[in-house]
């Protein structure tokens, strides 16, 4: 039995109000997970016996790195859907996600540098994982530059989609880089198959922070996609009706 008609929400006009309704929920979840994760990470979790207080950067760093990689995968997913089914919304989602992904990639590199200075004694080393994350950041910039350089929105979406799909091979390289090369960056601390090499309380703090970033990314991407929808569909009937309604509500509320 088909409960939800997915095709209905592929239309920007149907997705716009749905996104509007979802955004507050994701903000709430982000705040909830974020405060719980930071409380666990900064207050409850004990000091690491090797790294001291400095290790607490991982509560931001790990989540940011995961999101930087994950958002690129999600962009590739939307890019593939957009090219295969020629849906307009997919391209808008890809573009809405890119700035958030770029920010997370930058945050990951930046917090990594802050962590690296006291632990390794260097802000930056030319190590496989650091370098491939830097390439990921360049790829985000390339995508944003390319899709902003093309005036025709549909062509921009499709060109961006081809670029994302061609360059998504970098993600597994980053993810497995610590296993493939002898790296200064530590190996994965978290694994699905074997028990984690971290203390449980730190692990939970880290996971909650990563979840918070995930929810934040969804919320911010939805806000951005609503902006893109309004911009592109500004001549559509439903946007005009919406704007007329909004302005009339504002006029009603205005003090006389």
């Amino acid at each position: 039995m088909q409960m939800i008609n997915w095709y209905k929400f592929a239309a920007p006009s149907a997705f716009y109000p749905l996104a509007g309704r979802m955004i507050p929920w994701f903000w709430c979840l982000a705040a909830l997970f974020g405060s719980a994760g930071l409380w666990l990470g900064l207050v409850i979790a004990p000091i690491d016996f090797q790294q001291g207080e400095g290790y607490r950067i991982i509560f931001v760093h790990v989540g940011a790195s995961w999101m930087a990689m994950f958002i690129y995968l999600v962009m590739a997913f939307w890019a593939a859907i957009g090219l295969a089914f020629n849906t307009r919304l997919s391209g808008m989602m890809t573009r809405a996600l890119a700035p958030t992904g770029a920010c997370f990639a930058f945050l990951s590199l930046w917090t990594g540098a802050f962590w690296g200075k006291p632990m390794w004694g260097a802000w930056w080393v030319w190590d496989a994982r650091l370098t491939s994350t830097l390439i990921l950041f360049f790829l985000y910039i390339a995508f944003i530059a390319l899709s902003n350089a093309i005036d025709d929105a549909r062509r921009a979406d499709k060109a961006g989609a081809v670029l994302v799909l061609a360059s998504v091979v970098n993600i597994p390289i980053i993810y497995f880089s610590v296993n493939w090369w002898n790296s200064l960056h530590q190996g994965a601390s978290v694994s699905l198959t074997k028990s984690s090499s971290m203390a449980t309380i730190m692990l939970w703090g880290m996971l909650l922070c990563a979840l918070a970033m995930w929810m934040y990314s969804i919320a911010i991407a939805l806000i951005r996609v609503r902006g893109i929808i309004l911009e592109r569909e500004r001549n559509a009937e439903w946007v005009r009706a919406l704007l007329a309604k909004e302005t009339s509500v504002k006029e009603d509320n205005a003090p006389c």
Binding site: I135, F138, A142, L146, A149, S167, N170
Partner: peptide, 9 residues
């Protein structure tokens, strides 16, 4: 643009 797109690859 070509250099931005191609150089990372």
């Amino acid at each position: 643009l070509i250099s931005l797109v191609v150089l990372p690859l």
